[in-house]
């Protein structure tokens, strides 16, 4: 695996808000089929880092490369076109549409069929949409409006939407936030399977240490804007700097 060129590479990312350096010289790289977790206590800079990668924020310094191509200055929609799927910390779906229609819109956009004014969208890419919903286990609920779904189901719909453009990179901001423990494990198992099967590179932030240690191939630990540790679950668990950050701040999330 290590011989393959990275899908995502970030070098020396810096983001300041006024006098605060929220992200300070962060570099990371991510290969196809890899699950990389970005963790750290509240205010460590995870979300800022994430928003730099997905184009929501613009970095003050550093560069971001997707398969060697710079993403600097591109808006989120252009980054998506290059093959980056996203799920949000607080789910964002189209509440006035059914589950299937949500995925259909993403497929229409992917196939550049948005600027059509005549044929009904209802009949477009039905099979593809249902295949995607099948993969996340939401096919039975395809006709329900997204506005009435349970939270865990919305997360699955988001995942199906994120997969609609066959992404190379999947960015998931706290994918299991607000879910019940059993749902969390199911969603992460699903994600992990899809990542492996499709050779997607997946970066996620997470507060739940069970999720992190159970599903990440590699873990990055941030504190006060900087990367303080990197490695697999065992290495990060044993790292004294990580222990200090978590024990020192008293937020041993998960309590194990």
């Amino acid at each position: 695996m290590s011989s393959i060129a990275p899908v995502l590479e970030a070098r020396g990312l810096v983001k300041r808000f006024g006098g605060v350096v929220a992200v300070d010289q962060v570099s990371l790289s991510l290969r196809a089929g890899e699950m990389l977790a970005l963790i750290g206590p509240n205010g460590a800079g995870k979300s800022t880092c994430f928003n730099l990668l997905n184009g929501q924020l613009r970095a003050d310094a550093g560069e971001i490369l997707l398969e060697g191509r710079s993403l600097a200055g591109l808006p989120p929609r252009a980054i998506w076109r290059l093959g980056v799927g996203r799920t949000f910390q607080i789910t964002a779906t189209f509440a006035s549409m059914t589950v299937r229609e949500n995925v259909q819109v993403a497929l229409l956009s992917h196939h550049r069929r948005i600027w059509r004014f005549w044929r009904a969208a209802r009949h477009a890419f039905v099979a593809e949409a249902e295949a995607l919903l099948d993969q996340v286990g939401m096919r039975e609920q395809a006709d329900r409006p997204c506005g009435v779904l349970a939270y865990g189901d919305l997360k699955r719909v988001e995942l199906a939407i994120a997969l609609a453009n066959a992404p190379k990179l999947l960015l998931m901001d706290e994918p299991t936030a607000g879910m019940a423990p059993a749902e969390r494990i199911a969603l992460m198992e699903l994600t992990r399977r899809l990542v492996r099967e499709r050779g997607i590179a997946c970066l996620f932030t997470e507060h739940d240490m069970d999720v992190v240690f159970g599903h990440a191939d590699r873990i990055l630990v941030m504190n006060r804007g900087r990367l303080i540790a990197e490695g697999d679950a065992a290495a990060v668990r044993a790292d004294p700097a990580v222990r200090e950050v978590y024990l020192g701040s008293g937020t041993t999330s998960g309590g194990h």
Partner: peptide, 21 residues
């Protein structure tokens, strides 16, 4: 048509709409 769906998508959630291009 697809245009109407995309328009509603942008209304329902601009964040998500931009995130699907």
């Amino acid at each position: 048509a697809p245009f109407g769906y995309a328009l509603r998508a942008a209304r329902d959630s601009e964040l998500r709409a931009e995130a699907i291009g």
